[in-house]
Design a protein around this nucleic acid. Structure first.
Lengths: 102, 102
DNA sequence: AAATAAGTTATCATAAAAGATAACTTTGTT
DNA sequence: AACAAAGTTATCTTTTATGATAACTTATTT
């Protein structure tokens, strides 16, 4: 049954990829932010468990927070404390949208 | 009773000011963001009622969202749709904290 | 390849934000 | 001064994020 297992895995990963892509296009700003967050954490050599301890929560919650797929929109305070725990300051900018060119 | 009224008003405003100051120091990033949001709205010549209609909500909620004093931390999605309704894109940045100099 | 660590996912409980309505205050206009 | 428009505040309801626990998958290490 090695074939089946392989196919199952393939399908699983394909779907995963599709979801990620959809989220990417739809939720671009949030996606970019989460990528940055993960990058910051890894740059400091910390695991999700480490972060959980720093923030006084559990690793599962960190995973969810960093998750791109989850449609959830975190609170500003949550992102801010995450950043601060890593020695970063959060900054929110607004840039004028380029007029959608046809 | 003109004196009492005056004093009451004075006290009221004094407290208000204190609260604002505290919020300012404590929640600096959120404060800066809200100031920007209000500025963007006014730049487009819109009232809170206008925004409420654009976002499908009520003016009281817009007031609360823009309120500096409210300790509340909005969701990213909320700020994002507010910005988008005004033709802006939200951008989250993280900058390394300067080592607290003593 | 077993064992351990890291990360994910699901579910439930709790806290907090957002929606609605209404009464109020401040600002602006005539 | 009277009126209207804009903004605020309080309260309640509904929705959603967050916390906690546990079972699971994926990656690392020995």
């Amino acid at each position: 049954m090695t074939d089946q297992t392989t196919f199952k895995d393939f399908k699983k990963k394909a779907l995963k990829k599709t979801d990620v892509k959809a989220a990417y296009d739809e939720l671009a700003p949030a996606y970019a932010m989460k990528r940055k967050m993960i990058a910051m954490r890894k740059a400091k050599g910390l695991t999700q468990t480490d972060m959980a301890i720093l923030l006084g929560t559990k690793k599962s919650n960190i995973s969810r927070l960093e998750s791109v797929i989850s449609g959830a929109s975190p609170r500003l305070a949550t992102v801010e404390s995450y950043a601060q725990a890593l020695g970063f300051r959060m900054k929110i900018e607004f840039e004028a949208e380029r007029p959608k060119d046809k």
